[in-house]
Computed example of a mutant assay.
Amino acid sequence: MGKLECPAVFFLFSLIFILGSLSLLPICTAEVAVNQTHTTRFLSPTESPAVHRLTNVGGFGLVPEPTIILDYHSGPVMSGRNDKIKIFVTFYGTFSPKQRSTLRLFLRSFWNGQSRVSKNHPTVANWWQITHNYVDLYNTPVARNLLLAGDMTDKYSLGKDLLQSDIQKLVLKSMKKFGADARSMYLVLTSEDVLVEKFCMSVCGTHYYTFPSAATNGQMVPYGWVGNPASQCPGLCSWPYSAGGFLTKGLIPPNGDVGVDGMIITVANLLAGIATNPFGNGFYQPDGLEAVGACQGIYGTGSYPGYPGELLVDSKTGASFNVFGSSNSKFLVPRMWNPATLLCAGQV
């Protein structure tokens, strides 16, 4: 955690957290290093994370799946503005035009009503509606819509070996272009030739927030990072599109790119984590697992550790997926814990 030089700041932060407010005051203008909250955790497909559960009541496994509980810690969730959360993206490193296009298409698929597919088909937008069941102390829910509001490219301005604190520097740099807004999300995506602290060792992505500073207009601003695992750890961060667990051969990715399709899985995990736990005092389990992490490894009915479950299959390409996006695009997203049912779900 970065060292803050304002004596009263921790008391004020605690007061803000207790009130659960996103109306953030310009407490201190000193620029602070990264403040770590809960990382987005994706373990290997054969590992079973310890989770806080109640008695067995049924679920998606071959045997009754126990009810999962995510504790609420009295903090805010992201309600956005006008039921909309803006996302600003930095593509760091080298991404091909197709890779950028695929990632943009996924992020545009969160806008409610954008998918032009049958109402009977599962969609990214309907997956996101599960987050609307997460509410704060004032019964204010997570915004129904995510909007890709802007993106920029950074060609290795900080090199190819980054610390987590460098991610915050890139976020602050993007704020000079897009502005700083505590009700928006800032996302850094790194290409497969970029090494990032902790990447592939324990995480596939992380999310943090900034302390108030002059650079953030006195606001705490949530942000996240996801790396491309294609050459560094596909078995960890691109599973099930890479072999692992009970899969001796990876499934065919819907967009033809093991790295980018793997990134999309983690981006989905990350966005849900930021929205429901933006400042580390929202919804999470004692071990840090959040809305999607609590359902880790579950992608379809019949899932169990090392097996993703029953998925949809593209008849032309043989690719496996579970949701449709904008322009009839196809993606794989993990199941998310639904606080209304206390079960892992794929759609509202």
Results as ranks from 00 to 15, higher is better:
Q129I: 12
T67R: 14
T276D: 00
E65A: 13
I87V: 15
G318L: 14
N328V: 14
A125S: 15
P278M: 05
M220W: 01
G80E: 02
S320Y: 14
Y299Q: 08
D136H: 11
D257F: 15
L271M: 14
H207E: 02
Q114Y: 06
F331A: 00
Q99A: 15
Y307C: 14
F331V: 02
N35K: 08
K249E: 05
Y209M: 10
G280A: 04
F60E: 05
P334N: 10
I69S: 04
T102L: 05
R108N: 15
K177H: 15
P97D: 04
S303V: 02
G59R: 03
P45I: 03
I130F: 12
F10E: 11
C204Q: 07
S44Q: 04
N269K: 01
I298F: 06
T102V: 15
R53L: 03
M336A: 11
I252Y: 00
E65M: 10
N217K: 06
W239N: 01
G282A: 11
K155Q: 14
S213V: 01
L146T: 09
G205V: 07
G159A: 15
D181E: 02
V292F: 05
D261S: 12
L103T: 05
C6W: 04
L24W: 00
L43C: 02
T248V: 06
N145S: 15
Y186F: 09
L70D: 06
T248A: 06
I87H: 05
N126I: 08
D181R: 00
M220R: 06
G80Y: 12
T140W: 05
Q99C: 14
N228R: 07
A291W: 00
G113T: 00
